[in-house]
């Protein structure tokens, strides 16, 4: 079972590349049990949405 430290790394990586099957499994198992990382994952998506909007000059 991976820890939050590794999970946060995989969440970040997933924003830049497709995760391998093994990585996906490890991450989703962790997310099922970890509210903090679930929130972190959502925050990353929120940050990206705003950054893309800001970055395009909107």
């Amino acid at each position: 079972m991976i820890k939050c430290k590794e999970a946060s790394w995989l969440i970040s990586a997933s924003l830049d590349r497709a995760l391998t099957m093994a990585e996906q499994v490890r991450l989703s198992m962790h997310l099922m049990l970890c509210g903090n990382c679930k929130n972190f994952s959502r925050q990353m998506a929120q940050l990206r949405a705003v950054a893309r909007q800001v970055g395009s000059g909107d």
């Binding site: 820890k3 939050c4 590794e6 946060s8 509210g35 903090n36 990382c37 929130n39 972190f40 925050q43």
Partner: peptide, 14 residues
């Protein structure tokens, strides 16, 4: 992260 690999501070929901 703490030594055990968990978040030091809880991550809030935005």
């Amino acid at each position: 992260f703490a030594q055990d690999g968990h978040w030091r501070e809880p991550v809030r929901s935005w």
